[in-house]
Amino acid sequence: NSASGPLPDGWEQAMTQDGEIYYINHKNKTTSWLDPRLDPRFAMNQR
C-alpha cells in the first residue's frame, strides 16, 4: 500500500482480474483508481 492507516469508513479495496487495485466507495456506490487516503478532494470533504 502506498498509504498508511485504514481506509475511510465505507471504502473497500478490491482487485481486477488483471491484478490492478481499485477502491469501492459503498456510500456513494462509486469506484476509484485513486486511494481515498491520498486523494486531496476526499480529504477536504472529510473536514
Results as ranks from 00 to 15, higher is better:
21 I>A: 11
34 L>A: 09
15 M>Y: 12
14 A>V: 06
7 L>Q: 06
17 Q>P: 13
39 D>I: 14
17 Q>T: 14
28 N>I: 14
14 A>D: 08
7 L>C: 08
27 K>Y: 06
17 Q>M: 11
38 L>N: 15
35 D>I: 03
8 P>L: 06
6 P>W: 03
35 D>A: 04
16 T>M: 03
5 G>D: 08
35 D>L: 03
28 N>S: 09
39 D>V: 14
36 P>F: 01
29 K>G: 13
11 W>H: 02
44 M>A: 10
46 Q>W: 05
36 P>R: 00
11 W>A: 01
11 W>I: 04
20 E>S: 06
46 Q>P: 05
3 A>M: 12
38 L>Q: 13
10 G>L: 05
24 I>M: 08
43 A>N: 14
43 A>L: 10
42 F>W: 11
44 M>F: 13
11 W>L: 01
22 Y>D: 01
46 Q>R: 07
11 W>N: 01
29 K>P: 02
11 W>M: 03
24 I>A: 03
40 P>I: 14
13 Q>K: 09
22 Y>R: 01
17 Q>W: 05
2 S>V: 07
47 R>A: 09
8 P>E: 07
37 R>W: 03
26 H>M: 09
1 N>I: 04
7 L>P: 02
14 A>N: 14
43 A>G: 11
39 D>A: 13
38 L>P: 12
33 W>S: 03
45 N>M: 10
18 D>T: 12
11 W>D: 02
45 N>A: 10
2 S>Y: 07
39 D>S: 11
11 W>Q: 01
18 D>M: 11
47 R>Q: 04
2 S>W: 02
37 R>T: 05
40 P>H: 12
39 D>Y: 13
1 N>F: 03
5 G>H: 06
14 A>G: 10
9 D>K: 06
46 Q>S: 11
9 D>L: 08
23 Y>P: 00
36 P>Q: 01
15 M>V: 10
29 K>S: 11
14 A>P: 00
39 D>H: 15
4 S>G: 12
15 M>D: 03
2 S>A: 07
27 K>W: 06
12 E>C: 08
16 T>H: 02
31 T>M: 01
47 R>M: 07
47 R>S: 09
4 S>F: 08
20 E>P: 00
46 Q>A: 08
44 M>P: 07
29 K>T: 05
39 D>T: 12
26 H>E: 14
41 R>C: 15
36 P>H: 01
13 Q>R: 09
27 K>H: 11
1 N>Y: 02
15 M>F: 10
45 N>G: 08
2 S>R: 07
47 R>I: 14
13 Q>M: 07
13 Q>W: 05
18 D>G: 11
9 D>Q: 06
24 I>D: 00
44 M>D: 15
24 I>Q: 05
5 G>C: 08
34 L>I: 13
13 Q>I: 06
12 E>Q: 09
34 L>Q: 06
23 Y>H: 01
23 Y>K: 00
28 N>R: 13
28 N>Y: 15
24 I>C: 03
30 T>F: 03
20 E>L: 04
23 Y>F: 13
16 T>D: 01
23 Y>D: 00
19 G>S: 05
37 R>P: 00
15 M>P: 04
32 S>W: 02
40 P>N: 14
36 P>E: 00
30 T>H: 02
30 T>P: 00
39 D>N: 12
26 H>R: 12
36 P>I: 01
31 T>I: 01
25 N>D: 12
27 K>D: 07
45 N>V: 09
45 N>L: 13
18 D>P: 03
37 R>G: 05
45 N>E: 08
23 Y>A: 00
3 A>D: 12
31 T>F: 01
10 G>W: 05
22 Y>C: 02
15 M>I: 08
21 I>E: 08
23 Y>V: 01
29 K>L: 04
23 Y>T: 00
32 S>L: 00
17 Q>R: 10
7 L>R: 03
44 M>I: 12
6 P>D: 10
13 Q>V: 09
18 D>K: 13
46 Q>K: 15
16 T>E: 02
12 E>T: 05
